[in-house]
Design a protein around this nucleic acid. Structure first.
Length: 560
RNA sequence: UGAACUAUGGUGUAAUGGUAACACAGCAGAUUUUGGUUCUGUCGUUCCAGGUUCGAGUCCUGGUAGUUCAACCA
């Protein structure tokens, strides 16, 4: 619910500490809520970014404010328009839209002017030390750094040198512009942080206009300030940067944006490191950034997740400042919860066992009416073809059933979902003794939920008619890693040792004919099996379905 | 062994000095033409030691543990 910013009564209880901070700032007289989502276009967005997007856009929405999209493109060697486009697509898919789209590079001129202001105030200088010298003289967390021999150049010399840096007179790495603060500061970031470095690189937006590029710390706060961001929300690792963020703004005397930090999202059985995800893509361990095993937003989309399920997840995990690892099961809960409401039901057999219904006429063919979604009456019904020969799931038959098994077994009767009661009369085996076929009889009076004598059976199983079904490739996805924490490795081991060899199992299945027209990405529940959708690789000639998530299976649990 | 941040069930998150709660997971049961859904019940929590207070998860002091910071990355 939107809050009238000129009305001091706040109607809604804050949902987390950031929300509370915003309510406090409104109570103190702030009339705007302006946030921003500031990705660097150097990779694809993942579920952790989704949380940040939900926070930034969600908070702006809640208070009738605005959220900008700002690409933090201050490092041309890592960035690319490919990522810009993908990021925009993912944000839109999640259901958000930005007030304005900006780039840190839009502000390069202003940033340059401000650097001159700082030089003139004696707060910045050109340093000729090498990268190694700068590193060595920075000190460590316990020992103070040493001042650069170039630290006390005159303002005039600094102005001249900085301009010549901009004009391209010096090679990469030969000079940097540094803020002049305190080489002994307990916060390492204050030990004369680098503001500009020389990079003769083409930028994806500014081309070759610049050969000096601002560093994150020199750019981010000022960009926020230019956009008059009221609440600059980021993750906890930027916490130590906040004093520097404030320092530049204060020295420049510009609009005071403020930064607030929350703990980033971690998920069991996966990881968010862009560097490592990139490695998986480059080494072919996965099919690409949108491989359904990846924690990226595009992968979740391809796998069959809905935007609502991801938003609910972001809401459910909450926002706080302590380190956290969310159980992957919680994400799966969210997608099941949503898909249960919206996904139409279909029948598909993934591990087929042939059943011949011996007393069903060979040439007979009939249609049964199946409910598309028991949770949504408006989804209507469809017709499912039935015939003498059907496939059932191998798991739905056991020659010697354990206790409480109420599926098919010799002499036992089950309901075929939306169809007849059948009874197993004979088990056919091959030479090795493997069950290859079942001979069953059906009760002709048992269609439509009834039976000839009013008897009821406990077991209901799904099926497909062999002559009507079509075969499709099925991709079953499991966690990317075998360990909750991929970094849980023995001495000398690598996180890659924990990659799950069974993270994708490619198999096939027989699907009911109505699935032939399934549009790519549209979710379906394969009854009793899980949620699936047609993959982006799917074609009419070679249909491919992804398993989004399994259904909960309490029998599998009992049976363990 | 510097600084900053953090510490509540198995996992998350709340409780804003006044009965430690909600969700997920787990367990048990009911309903069910999906062993799904739904419903009911149940298990289980304040890092440690002092202090302030009528009263502390909350405030103070001191520990302990975890995270982050020493890229010309963001």
């Amino acid at each position: 619910m939107a809050i009238e910013t000129n009305d001091t009564t706040i109607k809604e209880k804050p949902s987390n500490f950031l929300d509370e901070i915003i309510q406090e700032s409104i109570a103190k007289g702030e009339t705007r809520v302006q946030t921003r989502f500031p990705p660097e276009p150097n990779g694809y967005l993942h579920i952790g970014h989704a949380k940040s997007i939900c926070i930034n856009f969600g908070l702006a929405q809640k208070y009738g404010g605005k959220c900008n999209l700002r690409f933090d493109d201050t490092n041309p060697v890592k960035e690319d328009v490919e990522y810009v486009d993908a990021i925009k697509r993912d944000i839109h898919w999640l259901g958000f839209d930005w007030a304005i789209e900006r780039y840190a590079s839009d502000y390069f001129d202003q940033l340059y002017e401000w650097a001159i202001v700082l030089i003139k105030k004696g707060l910045a200088y050109v340093d000729d030390q090498t990268q190694e010298q700068i590193r060595e003289t920075r000190g460590t967390v316990t020992v103070p750094g040493k001042e650069s021999p170039w630290r006390n150049r005159s303002v005039e010399e600094n102005l001249d040198l900085f301009e010549r840096m901009k004009n391209g007179e010096f090679p990469d790495g030969s000079k940097v512009l540094r803020a002049k603060i305190d080489m002994a500061h307990p916060n390492m970031l204050f030990r004369d942080p680098i503001m500009y470095r020389i990079l003769h690189a083409e930028h994806h937006r500014t081309g070759n206009k610049w050969c000096i590029y601002p560093m994150y710390d020199y750019a981010h706060g000022q960009c926020d300030s230019i956009e008059r961001i009221t609440h600059s929300i980021c993750t906890l690792e930027f916490d130590v940067h906040r004093p520097l963020y404030d320092w530049f703004i204060e020295q420049l005397g510009i609009y005071p944006s403020h930064q607030y930090e929350f703990a980033r999202l971690n998920l069991t059985y996966t990881m968010m490191s862009k560097r490592r995800l990139l490695k998986l893509v480059q080494e072919g361990a996965v099919m690409g950034w949108d491989d359904p095993r990846m924690p990226t937003i595009c992968a979740l989309r391809r796998k069959g997740y809905t935007p609502a399920s991801v938003r609910n997840f972001a809401e459910m995990v909450g926002v706080a400042k302590r380190d956290n690892v969310i159980d992957l099961g919680k994400l799966e809960y969210c997608v099941r919860e949503d898909l249960n409401k919206v996904a139409e039901r279909r029948m598909a057999v993934l591990n087929p066992l042939k059943v011949v219904i011996t007393n069903y006429p060979e040439d007979k063919h009939e249609l049964f009416t199946a409910i598309n979604n028991p949770e949504d009456e408006s989804a209507g019904t469809r017709q499912v073809p039935f015939s003498r020969e059907i496939y059932i799931e191998r798991d739905d038959f056991m020659e010697v059933p354990p206790k409480k098994y109420y599926r098919l077994s010799p002499g036992n009767e089950v309901r075929l979902r939306y169809s007849y009661l059948i009874k197993c009369e004979e088990v056919i085996k091959d030479a090795e003794g493997n069950v290859i076929e079942l001979r069953c009889t059906y009760d002709p009076m048992s269609g439509n939920g009834s039976s000839s004598d009013g008897r009821r059976v406990k077991g209901v199983i799904h099926w497909v008619s062999i002559p009507d079904a079509f075969k499709a490739e099925i991709r079953l996805f499991n966690p990317l890693f075998t360990k909750e924490d991929p970094d849980d490795v023995p001495e000398g081991g690598s996180w890659e040792d924990n990659l799950n060899p069974d993270s994708m199992i490619v198999t096939s299945g027989y699907l009911e004919p109505s699935l032939k027209e399934a549009p790519i990405g549209q979710p379906f529940q394969f009854e009793r099996v899980g949620y699936f959708c047609a993959d982006t690789d799917s074609t009419p000639e070679h249909p491919v379905f992804n398993r989004t998530v399994t259904l909960k299976d309490s029998w599998a649990k009992i049976n363990k």
